[in-house]
């Protein structure tokens, strides 16, 4: 069994009018089955109101299922005696950086979680140091959070979660309120946690560029899982994504448009390098010049900045 598992998870809330009378019931999450393995990087995509945030709040036992069940590391989230263990193991980062920082100094905020867990003082200091270093915010430990940029605040929030030594971290649209630089910072920090520390990541977002590195993607719509697969599998279905109120990175969209016009390209192109290589092959193939023996020579220049290049600076 994976670290996070949901089975036929349903969440309904009751809408009331001004007098408190029941107006109707909204099903925000509808029979969702999820199985996330330890060490996975999972992305959950969906437009606003698709139910992805509601789903996320179940993993941290902030919301409880109306029907079905959620297990975190084998613990049922409805088992009240395990509540604090669940919240420690499944850390959560929210959207608005200002509304989740409690401390007035960066280091005190990072220490807040361990304080609540009753960690001894010396160990709190050790954890704070290690967590701030993991997100590259150690030099800012004495700063007031109000003096930091959005991306830096979100990294502090992430450090605050890491200091609790969780097994997985759920990030609920952590980049929605950030500018492109802030988004890059946060996504880089998240990837490093997954790669280096092996922490399971559940990243909820509507920015397509951020999910390229995930090993599994779920797309939600109307509370249900509408699509799932690897990023490549997901991006090869441009039409379907558009139907779900999402878009694809410019590269993928350009490749899709070209294919539609009859150019012979592979499905689900993710990076600019891939597209350039494929197109030059087509072009040189047409012009009977055989230069495609060593793909290395076909690499576009400035390979050292491949992240920027590949994602057009949006990540």
């Amino acid at each position: 069994m994976g670290i996070i598992r949901t089975e036929k998870l349903v969440f309904e809330y009751i809408r009331r009018d001004e007098e408190g009378n029941v107006e109707g019931i909204t099903r925000a999450v509808d029979e969702v089955d999820l199985d996330v393995k330890q060490g996975d990087f999972v992305a959950i995509l969906g437009h606003n109101g698709s139910g992805k945030s509601t789903l996320a709040k179940h993993i941290n036992a902030i919301l409880y299922p109306t029907e079905g069940a959620v297990w975190v590391d084998g613990m049922d989230t409805q088992d009240e005696s395990r509540l604090w263990d669940i919240r420690q193991e499944a850390g959560m980062v929210f959207q608005n950086p200002d509304n989740q920082i409690i401390g007035q100094v960066v280091e005190e905020d990072v220490g807040f979680g361990p304080e609540n867990m009753g960690v001894p003082t010396e160990e709190i200091w050790a954890r704070v140091e290690e967590s701030l270093k993991a997100v590259g915010m150690y030099e800012y430990r004495k700063y007031s959070p109000n003096k930091l940029s959005g991306g830096q605040k979100q990294r502090v929030s992430i450090a605050g979660v890491i200091a609790m030594h969780p097994k997985c971290i759920i990030l609920d649209e952590p980049t929605a309120m950030l500018d492109p630089n802030g988004r890059k910072e946060v996504v880089r920090a998240v990837r490093a946690l997954n790669d280096v520390e092996g922490i399971t990541i559940v990243l909820i977002t509507h920015y397509m560029e951020e999910i390229i590195h995930a090993n599994r993607v779920f797309v939600m719509d109307q509370g249900r899982i509408a699509m799932q697969g690897t990023p490549r599998e997901i991006f090869s279905q441009v039409e379907r994504l558009k139907e779900l109120r999402l878009d694809v990175p410019q590269v993928t969209l350009l490749a899709y448009e070209l294919k539609k016009s009859g150019v012979d390209l592979p499905d689900g192109i993710l990076t600019a390098e891939e597209l350039v290589r494929a197109l030059t092959q087509v072009y040189h193939g047409q012009n009977d010049i055989n230069v495609i023996t060593d793909p290395g020579t076909e690499e576009p220049p400035r390979r050292d900045r491949s992240d920027v290049f590949g994602l057009g600076g949006n990540l």
Binding site: K57, N60, I62, W84, R87, Q88, G91, M92, F94, N99, Q100, I102, F112, G113, N116, M117, G160, V161, M164
Partner: peptide, 9 residues
């Protein structure tokens, strides 16, 4: 919510 998620009780 953020405080609860960080085990504040």
């Amino acid at each position: 919510m953020a405080m609860e998620a960080r085990c504040y009780r």
